[in-house]
């Protein structure tokens, strides 16, 4: 068996941190929690020092929240993977952390087992889209009448296949089920999801930039 994945927790609620830590330690043997932080400054210092594999990052914290941690650390630690974890389901929050560089977004109601799966998945380079995030992204990239024209088709439009994959994600399908439904391999599903993540992070579509600029990310 390979080395356990080293996980760092960032959340301003101590109660929630200890809950996640207990759940991960108890139910998932191949993850170890190597550190935790309760504020942006603590998180930046701790992650810099420990260099964990995966950071579970709360979106809402005083002093800028998860997006601020990402802003400070992404350039110097490109190998550390961030997975956003939040109670909020507001579109702005979800899109904001994704655009700041998180590889995925899950809500705090997720079970320990699912959380461990998500950690594994982002660690291996995949993106993690909850059904709701898939819905948001579909919404942002939809061609409404009167929407602003795409500036860069490569980034501002989803391919038909990517749309199909996102739709199935939003319907609650697992990767394996999506692969079966569309007659493609799980690997191909992962490729499509990663490509959608890239577009969500880099596209200048009006709605995306609006949400991002509301949070002062660009």
């Amino acid at each position: 068996m390979t080395d356990p994945i080293r996980v760092f927790l960032v959340d301003d609620h101590a109660l929630f941190r200890s809950g996640v830590r207990a759940e991960l330690d108890r139910s998932v043997p191949d993850l170890t929690v190597v550190g935790e932080a309760g504020s942006v400054d603590e998180a930046v210092a701790g992650i810099r020092h420990i260099k964990p594999d995966v950071v579970l990052l709360d979106v809402h914290m005083p002093d800028g929240g998860g997006a601020e941690v990402l802003r400070q650390l992404r350039p110097e630690l490109p190998d550390v993977v961030f997975l956003a974890l939040s109670v909020s389901d507001a579109a702005e929050d979800v899109i904001a952390v994704i655009r700041a560089g998180a590889r995925g977004y899950v809500t705090k109601t997720i079970s320990g087992r699912e959380l461990a799966d998500a950690v594994h998945r982002v660690k291996s380079g995949d993106a993690v889209f909850s059904p709701r995030l898939a819905g948001f992204v579909l919404d942002v990239f939809s061609d409404r009448p009167g929407a602003a024209p795409p500036g860069d088709p490569e980034l501002d439009l989803l391919t038909r296949r990517e749309r199909d994959v996102l739709r199935l994600l939003a319907r609650g399908y697992a990767y394996k089920e999506i692969a079966g439904e569309l007659f493609i391999s799980v690997k191909t599903v992962e490729t499509h999801v990663s490509s959608v993540l890239r577009k969500t992070q880099l596209s200048n579509r009006y709605e995306l930039s609006r949400w991002a600029s509301d949070r002062r990310l660009v």
């Binding site: 009167g146 602003a148 439009l157």
Partner: peptide
């Protein structure tokens, strides 16, 4: 069909 190119208004 996602590519209904509905004559988009020029960006203002």
């Amino acid at each position: 069909d996602g590519v209904t190119s509905s004559a988009p208004a020029a960006p203002v």
